[in-house]
Amino acid sequence: MARYLSPKAASLVLAVLLIVAVAVVTLVCSQLSGGSQRVATDAMIKLTIVVGMYMFAGNSGVLSFGHISFLGLGAYSAAWLTISPSIKASLMPGLPAWLIALELHPAAGTVAGGLLASAVALLFGLPLTRLAGIAASIGTFALLVIFYATFSNWTPVTGGQGSLYGLPTFTNLPIAAGVASLTILAAALYQASAAGFRLRGSREDPIAARAVGIDIRRERLIAFVISAFFVGMAGALYAHFLTVVVAGEFYLKLTFITVAMLVIGGMRSLTGAVVGTAFVTLFSELLRQTERGFDLGFVVVGGRLGLQEVGLSAAMLLALIFRPRGITGGRELGGLGTSR
């Protein structure tokens, strides 16, 4: 039936189905213990990150290693805008006086985090979108390192290696799930839009795309800026979830986990981004339980730190080798959104 819907209608149906899934998970988890709720909240934030990354990477075909920088920007914005002035004055004396004096509501800080990430994405995207293929991916990686080095060394403004504490607790499961749903809706609308469609054309065949009038740089830049906005918001939520901001969070580990979610699920579809996040979260939880060690009856397998990561990277390698298009094969749920 999917094929008889207009692209916009199909993607709205898709978004609704995925959001219903998010809502069900949220409802179920909200009945569970506090620990499970935290896991679910964390997963919803990751979902926002991964769906945000998907908007750019999935539609353009250019894998980005730099989006975690946008997450960091969002988190630091939250810290700059919502920590109380007295703590700010001692932790981040390098901030301008007006900023130290400012104390916004976390919701405002979250939107500001998204906007800052978008602005930075525009600035770096202008040169970055000139690059093609592997050079583009390397460029996004350079972005990651530049921001990590800045976060962890600009002590008067970011707290450097230390942690910024004193963020108000704001992010809970419903809020995280709500923002994740919003992101899914935005991704679905974007991919059905003319701009998203043109970007997917450039992913399929850049030369043919130019020959039908598509300005690839422009389309990539649009997607880069939009996707940075949502990842930036996720960063602020993440900061209000952990209530501390530490530079070390915004580097290789989280990059690896989110890229793994995207690749394992299938980076060419929105459904893939959602499924990948769900799969990796469950798989990691399973491994985390195992990490504590368990009794096999005849032998006690000792818990091992690192098992979770080893399992995850092994799963990712297997996915690349045996299912290079991910669990979903790059298809949308029920064939909604006709292109794969």
Binding site: V62, L63, G133, I134, S137, F256, V259, A260, V263, R304, L305, G306, L307, Q308, E309, V310, L312, S313, A314, M316, L317, L320, I321, P324
Partner: peptide
Amino acid sequence: PLRGQDPASLLVASFAVSYFLQNLTVM
């Protein structure tokens, strides 16, 4: 097994191998 795939897949694979070995060492 990945030879001939696009450079981005190979890059992700080496990323995975790197992460695998690092954490195997942790284990």
